[in-house]
């Protein structure tokens, strides 16, 4: 290994740019390559961080010192890129959802195991200070045994994403797989429990039945220890709707609530606008004065795991469990039937 961890970022879009900022803050790491189909755009990003731009991961791996491949491309491309990186013996940080099928997820996990490298999926909500605090309080037993939970994540159709691939069901998995996955992963982590059964209803929109996008989902999860949870995720909100998240956990000793719309500390009002002050630049941390940038915390965690040979919190197996639930929810939404999840012995 070179003096610093060499990082190749694949994808220069919204999440790629976010990860680049975060990696640039890690003193033990250096961005050596930015990979993208549109090389001109990749060059633009690479220039900022003193890296080189490449049109393919293959070229980047052969030309640069790379220890870590950070996959920030559209979901449907994750598996091939991750496997390519594993086969080259690289550690991989992959955006969520890790894949669109369990088969692909398994191939990624197997490939990472064979290469004996670190593999983490970027379930960043675990590094959001508000959610991490909530999980800590629940773990401490403050609300007693959790009985009923409620998690919400709603926005207008996402403006980010190259050619809006998010809005193509086959590429993103729709709102159930792409967006609700945050809260499903968080609830598993927060409750320390696995989902036993899921039922979902979803709304679709689109011009033709073949190109229908699921853009609003309501799901009920039943966890093994008995906690039930309502998860709502939406890309169907009107344009002025702020990105809204909320969480409630009610238990035998009380309840806990989080709500990103009631916590911004500053509002600026002028003749032309009402704006909650945005100390960050990213839309979904708008107005949230986090003590530490959640994306930085996430990447710091992964870098530490690589440097100190420790297992990341959201490794392949752990992330597969979350993926299994959202895929089951998507199935339920289509079939109108609840899906029972397999119980490991």
């Amino acid at each position: 290994m070179a003096e610093k961890l060499g990082v190749a970022i694949v994808g220069y879009g919204f999440m790629g740019a976010t990860h680049m900022i975060a990696w640039s803050m890690v003193p033990e790491a250096r961005i050596t390559a930015v990979v993208g189909r549109n090389v001109a755009k990749a060059v633009e990003s690479a220039y900022k961080y003193g890296a080189r731009a490449y049109g393919s991961l293959k070229e980047a791996l052969s030309a640069e010192a790379v220890d870590v491949v950070d996959v920030c491309t559209p979901t449907y491309t994750h598996k091939d890129l991750a496997v390519e990186a594993f086969e080259a013996g690289k550690h991989v940080l992959c955006e969520k959802p890790m894949a669109l099928t369990l088969k692909d997820a398994d191939e990624m996990i197997w490939s990472a195991g064979k290469a004996d490298v670190k593999f983490m999926v970027a379930h960043v909500l675990r590094f959001f200070a508000d959610y991490a605090k909530a999980r800590g309080l629940v773990k401490q037993g403050l609300v007693g045994e959790p009985v009923i939970a409620r998690a919400q994540r709603t926005s207008a159709a996402p403006p980010w994403g190259v050619e809006s691939w998010f809005l193509e069901q086959a590429k993103s998995g729709g709102v159930t797989v792409d967006l609700a996955i945050h809260d499903v992963d968080f609830l598993r982590w927060c409750l320390g429990d696995e989902v036993r059964r899921v039922y979902a209803v979803a709304c679709t929109r689109g011009a033709t039945p073949g190109a229908m996008l699921e853009d609003h989902v309501l799901m009920v999860l039943r966890f093994r220890k008995g906690c039930i949870a309502h998860v709502e995720a939406s890309w169907a909100m009107p344009g002025l709707h702020p990105f809204t998240t909320s969480l409630e956990v009610a238990g035998t000793k009380g309840m806990l609530n989080l709500d990103n719309q009631s916590t911004p500390p500053i509002t600026i009002t002028t003749d032309k606008k009402v704006e909650r002050l945005n100390p960050e630049t990213r839309p979904w941390v708008q107005g949230m004065p986090f003590p530490i940038d959640p994306y930085y915390a996430e990447i710091r965690h992964f870098a530490t795991c690589v440097l100190e040979d420790r297992e990341p919190m959201m490794d392949g197996e752990e992330s597969r469990k979350t993926l299994e639930v959202v895929l089951a929810a998507a199935d339920s939404g289509r079939s109108g039937k609840p899906v029972e999840l397999s119980v490991e012995v």
């Binding site: 045994e145 009985v147 008995g226 039930i228 009610a250």
Partner: peptide, 18 residues
């Protein structure tokens, strides 16, 4: 229907319906 918040109740106290 959830496991109850109040375990002493004979009736359910938590539920979610879709």
């Amino acid at each position: 229907i959830g496991t109850n918040i109040d375990k002493s109740l004979e009736v359910e106290d938590s539920f979610l319906t879709l």
